[in-house]
């Protein structure tokens, strides 16, 4: 059974992190990297993140399962139609993958194949519905499955998005369609996030706050300019700018956000982008 599901059900504070599949056919290094993070509850495996072509998240997630590491399989709607998404979900079940993070996906124009035709046959809400249906033993066409998969399906939310009400309408839809947990886009504004949690808590679906390690001011500015949905407040950019040790300052900022998460939600999803060695420091109280 999904450790993530168990720990969230037990109201434990959960920590997840993420790894990206390699741009190549050998997953050895990625698995080594994942092993170093095995103490965390589960590891997200990204799906052609930022629309950059890499090994499939399904393959690496399957390999992680075999290595005894619990993955959260990320699946986007950008690259596959409903047949491919459903068959990959069944394939995931065959590997023993239970945790899913079902996403719409960044637009292809951001990635390394901008000439690709984006699919979006389904959106994230419909993909959640689909996974829920498969768990009930029925596919999208209403056909019975020979065996029903067991999933713990999660979704993403951008707590700092404006207008709040519009973002929250979609949050509700995702819950109505079967989202069992949420991992948020990177959050940087404690007040804003606490406000979101105040609205989200009554709905009783566990939320893991996205905490992104800022390495320096340049990176923060790059994120603001290039990464959809990420907004580093100017005050934090300045803090990084004025620090003698920007990375240490970035760790401090991440720790502050983790503290906020401990106070108002059920876990954190850490995005440390190559600095996984700093995770213990970010989590230290």
């Amino acid at each position: 059974m999904s450790r993530l599901k168990e720990r969230l059900a037990a109201k434990e504070f959960v920590v997840t992190a993420e790894i990206a599949p390699p741009k190549g056919g050998d997953a050895t290094l990625a698995i080594e990297q994942a092993k170093k993070l095995a103490e965390l509850t589960a590891l997200n495996v990204t799906d052609n993140q930022g629309a950059n072509m890499r090994m499939s998240s399904l393959a690496l997630s399957g390999l992680l399962c075999q290595a005894g590491i619990e993955p959260i399989l990320q699946m986007t709607c950008r690259d596959r139609n409903r047949l491919a998404l459903q068959s990959d979900l069944l394939g995931a079940a065959a590997f023993g993958i239970e945790n899913l993070l079902l996403l719409s996906g960044d637009h292809a124009s951001f990635g390394d194949h901008p000439e690709a035709r984006s699919v979006f046959d389904l959106d994230s809400v419909q993909l959640l519905q689909t996974a829920t249906g498969l768990m009930q033993g029925v596919d999208m066409a209403g056909k019975n499955l020979s065996s029903a998969p067991l999933f713990f399906a999660g979704a993403a939310v951008s707590p700092e998005a404006e207008p709040f009400d519009l973002m929250f309408l979609k949050y509700r839809k995702k819950i109505a369609c079967g989202a069992q947990f949420f991992q948020t886009q990177a959050v940087f504004d404690p007040e804003c996030f606490a406000g979101f949690m105040q609205a989200a808590s009554p709905l009783q679906v566990p939320v893991l706050a996205g905490v992104l390690l800022l390495k320096n001011a340049r990176m923060a500015r790059f994120l603001n300019a290039n990464i959809p949905g990420v907004k580093v407040p100017e005050a934090l950019v300045e803090r990084l700018d004025q620090s003698d040790n920007p990375l240490a300052e970035g760790v401090a900022i991440a720790r502050e956000m983790v503290a906020v998460a401990r106070a108002c939600c059920q876990g954190v999803h850490l995005m440390t982008l190559g600095h996984e060695d700093l995770i213990p420091e970010i989590l230290s109280i």
């Binding site: 809400v125 998005a161 519009l166 959809p228």
Partner: peptide
């Protein structure tokens, strides 16, 4: 841009 049917994606700013 994605033809989504159930509300905005996380990229709305």
């Amino acid at each position: 841009a994605k033809g989504l049917l159930n509300g905005p994606c996380g990229g709305m700013a």
